[in-house]
Design a binder for these strands. Structure first.
Lengths: 165, 165
DNA sequence: TAATACCCGACTATTTAACTTGGTTTAATA
DNA sequence: TATTAAACCAAGTTAAATAGTCGGGTATTA
């Protein structure tokens, strides 16, 4: 179980999908705009998510991605694992070959911690999150600011792009 | 709360100290040999541990490092935090300025997770670990193999160095 | 048939951890 | 007092991984 920004991005994108997927497929371009994640990076992540049967794609105009299962049946741990396929089992975290084929002093501790994290995250589904008030609030804010961007003339959008981090 | 190999090294070194600190200060060179951590890297880590009052140093021949407090009063979370002073609060983990000054969609989730991890690790002290049977076993193995290395002629040591990862 | 959107692979920039080098300072001991 | 073993310090270097880019595709459907 590796925790990186990549996993965070994947979870964020999947949550966006769960929140906006009621009316057919969601385009990656929309997720990219709402969540400030580069489009091509999203494409890479969703290729992995699709291979792991977490989403399915609809091609052509009006297409995009849908959740493969019900949002209450997709938990956070599964999403992170899907996106970290290259799990090298960081030194200690994987097999017990941390110290020349043997187990290192703190191997069991990190093993316990990994289990702890995994249990926590696999107990949380996308549905759990979409039902939370605090998530709904952020979602609403993002939708509104997205609306503003669409309304703004092109000149303003340019400035915004330059100013943004 | 960042989880990196640096934190793992620090905890491993501190545990080694807890296990071998009964007879006066422990030299970093010994920890380096037992735990396969480069000496100068250990020096850097212990500089931070010392600044955070987790260890105290004794200079000169026969010197080394001692735990500043009783091993039952030093928990794992404190060690990791001490060594990760440059806590940039990765994007989301710190303040809620993940998305242009605002909170991003999954901010609260990672916040909850951080708390979960911190609680788990701060509930474990060095003494907790030294009392564990599985830790004692690894410690014993390391002490014995350390003995072997000291007995071997220089030629063998050289080969071992070349073969080791 | 053209626009839309997914798909794919290689490439690059940046960051950071891990490690190295080459010293200086301190104190025990022979 | 000279030697030695240890902590201390400050750079620089290497290697790996992440985040992101670019330029091409290919399938779908309005």
């Amino acid at each position: 179980m590796r925790l990186t920004t990549r996993g965070r991005y994947a979870v964020t994108a999947m949550l966006d999908l769960a929140l906006h997927g009621d009316n057919g497929p969601v385009a990656l371009a929309d997720i990219s705009a709402r969540q400030d994640i580069s489009l091509s990076y999203l494409e890479q992540l969703f290729a992995k998510l699709r291979k792991n049967a977490l989403v399915r794609s609809v091609r052509g105009p009006g297409g995009g991605y849908c959740l493969q299962a019900d949002s209450k049946d997709i938990n956070i741990a599964v999403i992170i694992d899907a996106v970290n396929e290259t799990t090298d089992a960081t030194n200690c975290a994987g097999k017990g070959d941390c110290q020349g084929g043997q187990v290192c002093l703190t191997h069991h501790l990190w093993d316990d911690l990994s289990e702890q994290i995994h249990n926590f995250l696999s107990g949380i589904s996308l549905a759990t999150l979409t039902q939370q008030q605090r998530v709904k609030q952020v979602c609403q804010r993002q939708d509104e600011s997205q609306l503003n961007v669409n309304i703004k003339p092109e000149g303003f959008q340019l400035i915004e792009t330059l100013v943004a981090p």
